[in-house]
Design a protein around this nucleic acid. Structure first.
Lengths: 109, 109
DNA sequence: CCTTTCGACAACGAATTGGTTGTCAACGAC
DNA sequence: GTCGTTGACAACCAATTCGTTGTCGAAAGG
């Protein structure tokens, strides 16, 4: 089991990168210069964040106009992380429900 | 908007901590010595991981037998993270579906 | 042609992370 | 009582992270 969830959660841990994903969801695709003009960080820092998202498999590069490189979301990339989370949450609630039921069950006499 | 998702995703990024959550889901509650005997890391390292999970709000301390401190899952703590992920995934797929539809729609003539 | 812009790479610094060892007081077990 | 265990703290170390600046070549744009 190679850890594929780790990089995804690590990428999602940074608010700047979650913001980038948000703009990707709104705009569809973006580029380093566009993000740089909208963020208070340097062009190189933006490129690093995009590299982190790429490394996590969340986005992919696409050829743009001229020499510009555009980035877009990679379909289905969020699947494993969502699956783990929802599964854990289900087991979580299930355990709590069972505990609650056990407490409320009148003791046998 | 204080970043509450960040610590949660950061806590989930570490496979050791995800493993701890798994055992919590199986066992219901655990303690530092128990985890230490099941993991190849030191008692102090285990305590640090539990502190990270606690800081993220995922687990809580509970009094145990004697001087032992037990840890258990905190109900609903996974909610915000799951909400963000599923919401993002929904918008993701929605965007892809719209794109696909736009491509397949015959051009008006 | 000249200047700007973009992408890529490197180096650096401060902070954080994930692990270690060591020490200590307090509590249980015997 | 004594000994082993537990929790809490600190110091330390190596690696990583998130930001910076600097440099460079190549491609647009005037």
């Amino acid at each position: 089991m190679t850890d594929e969830l780790g990089p995804v959660f690590a990428a999602l841990a940074d608010p700047t990168r979650r913001g980038m994903i948000d703009t990707l969801l709104r705009e569809g695709s973006t580029s380093v210069p566009t993000l740089t003009s909208a963020l208070p960080i340097s062009r190189q820092a933006v490129a690093k964040h995009l590299a982190a998202l790429d490394h996590a498999g969340l986005i992919e590069r696409a050829p743009g106009a001229g020499r510009e490189v555009r980035y877009q979301l990679r379909p289905g990339a969020l699947g494993p992380a969502t699956a783990w989370l929802t599964e854990a949450e289900a087991a979580w609630d299930d355990r709590l429900a069972r505990l609650k039921r056990a407490v409320e069950t009148p003791r046998r006499r």
